[in-house]
Design a protein around this nucleic acid. Structure first.
Lengths: 327, 327
DNA sequence: CTAGGTGCAAATAATTTGCAGAGGC
DNA sequence: GCCTCTGCAAATTATTTGCACCTAG
């Protein structure tokens, strides 16, 4: 946050039937100006300090209004009262909460989200919202050092990590497809792999350019801790697959593997596309999400063709579904 | 719960400086008799219904006492009040919470726990407790069917799933080591793999016997939904590895892979060993945790020996560490 | 003029506490 | 008899509401 909430053009966001009032406007501005997780009372206090005399009730009502308007999100840290955090263009996330200093830290985890989806689906439960909170002691509290609380511009960290992951994914996809093309023993398969490799290379260039631009804005950016956790296609399947290819993996197997990877990466791009602060990042992600989907289709067609040609009865084996449950 | 809390011998558990009083005893019994997540008021209501006239304050005090004694755990479902669940020999777990009927369902996920550990460690945060809550709509509420709420004997489900996972792990370990032994081109490697295969086979038998015994107690047990989620060694590494072996994976690579798998499975056994209700399950798990650790040592020694013999400069590459962060 | 917005005081709601009396050991 | 439990009523805390008044459109 910090420099990520320059009092945006909220004037449009307001829910129907709203009247522009000085007081509320003021409360909203104070809320947006201060990052972190404020309780209703913190906000009252801040407002009192800044100037006006405002009734608690008004603050509560303003917070309620902000929630409806999509500016604020109510969070419950188990303290017996609620806190509020920005939600305007601020992705849903999870929290680390220090019990000794009370500060909270945010993170995103595609891994956890995927696990949650798996659990919900296994129980036939429709999830609307998830809460993940890790309670414990932060580094500062444990080591005793009171070091200046570094500002946490979470949107920038998010963009950095999303791009890193996207780059790693594309990179390993590129490597995989290049090798697969080199190894493939049949014309059609080779053509498919070559085409995919070409596209991955293009993606990669765009992503790297964007990453460079982002990093240029803040020299320390690269050294900040991870904000978005994802052990996706890059670290997992493609990477493992690329090694195997070197020692000869037939086209069908390679295609199956690629399907799994592209699916994972498609989900990743789609999940986080909407959460980019700026429209360019958003555009890139949506575009890639689509391209990954196209890749998927190409792969599946190729797989079918290949299986059909070899006369496998299993050709109809339903197009790889969701991650199966264990055992 | 249901049949899992037959008013256990809590008399010993009580915190220091406690006096046995009829009232409190009664409150505790009522609490233990009713499964689910009770609010202080639910409990008051239940007690009133059963008989005695008890002051709310007394119930609150009894709940506080139960928490200290390790009988009850306070949970916050964001309703603005707390609920309490059994904690006596009832493992920490996560929740699915239906917003429309208010019921909550429990699950365990080693996957999520592992992700949480990764996040905490990346932020140098010492986690003491984690909360994972999935809010949404349960199947019954969505489909309109009011079907009788099936009892959820979570301990039994836990044992079932833990055993299933353990069996799958051992099974794929067995397959992997057998193949590795068959494929290995050097005497020492073969001996190591054979020994490990033998041990996995023994484990497997014990686990399967135990599983059969468990299932015999409840014919429906096998069809109940998953309670413990874990995509561990079985679905991941060993399984993938076994396939690769078929097409020739050298001993060093095979050993490295095995190390990763054994480490994952060791963690799994260790993490859940203490959560078994009965001592036999607990004993089995602890025993296996140890054996997996021994396997690890065997593997690492073998790996070192092998790397050394081949004169690799990388022999000192530190014994595979924790899961690395991405990119 | 009129639908909201605001302030203040009173109402809720869950939980805690002070204090006098009851009860185990 | 001492120390802990109980009950009841009052206190606390976070949040909501009723109602009279104010104000922007």
């Amino acid at each position: 946050m910090t420099h990520t909430h320059p009092t945006p053009d909220l004037d449009q966001l307001k829910p129907a039937g709203t009247r522009r009032s000085g007081k509320r406007e003021f409360i909203v501005n104070v809320f947006l100006r201060h990052e972190g997780h404020l309780s209703a009372d913190d906000l009252v206090e801040l407002i009192r300090r800044e100037d006006s005399r405002i009734s608690r009730a008004t603050v509560y009502r303003a917070l309620q209004w902000m929630e409806e308007a999509g500016i604020a999100r109510k969070v419950d840290f188990g303290e017996g009262r609620f806190r509020f955090e920005h939600s305007y263009r601020h992705p849903r996330h999870f929290h680390l909460i220090c019990k000794s200093c009370g500060r909270s830290f945010e993170f995103l985890s595609s891994d956890i989200e995927a696990s949650i989806e798996e659990v919900a689906s296994a129980r036939a439960f429709t999830a609307h919202q998830s809460v993940v909170q890790i309670y414990g002691a932060c580094e500062a509290c444990r080591t005793g050092r009171t070091e200046a609380a570094e500002p946490v511009p979470s949107e920038v960290l998010f963009a950095r990590d999303a791009l890193r992951i996207a780059i790693a994914t594309e990179r390993s996809g590129l490597e995989f497809y290049s090798r697969a093309a080199a190894v493939s023993r049949n014309r059609r398969g080779r053509a498919v792999f070559e085409r995919l490799a070409r596209e991955e290379r293009e993606h990669l260039e765009k992503l790297e350019a964007r990453y460079q631009r982002l990093v240029a804005q803040d020299p320390q950016l690269e050294s900040r801790p991870t904000f978005l956790f994802f052990k996706g296609a890059a670290n997992g399947l493609f990477a493992a697959g690329a090694e195997d290819l070197a020692r000869g993996l037939d086209d069908r197997k390679a295609l199956m593997l690629a399907v799994r990877c592209e699916r994972t990466s498609h989900r990743f791009f789609r999940r986080y596309a909407g959460q980019f602060e700026d429209t360019e990042g958003r555009r890139i992600f949506f575009e890639f999400a689509n391209e990954e989907r196209e890749h998927l289709e190409v792969l599946i067609r190729a797989y079918r063709a290949l299986s059909g040609r070899r006369g496998r009865a299993r050709a109809s084996r339903r197009a790889p579904t969701r991650s199966r449950a264990q055992a």
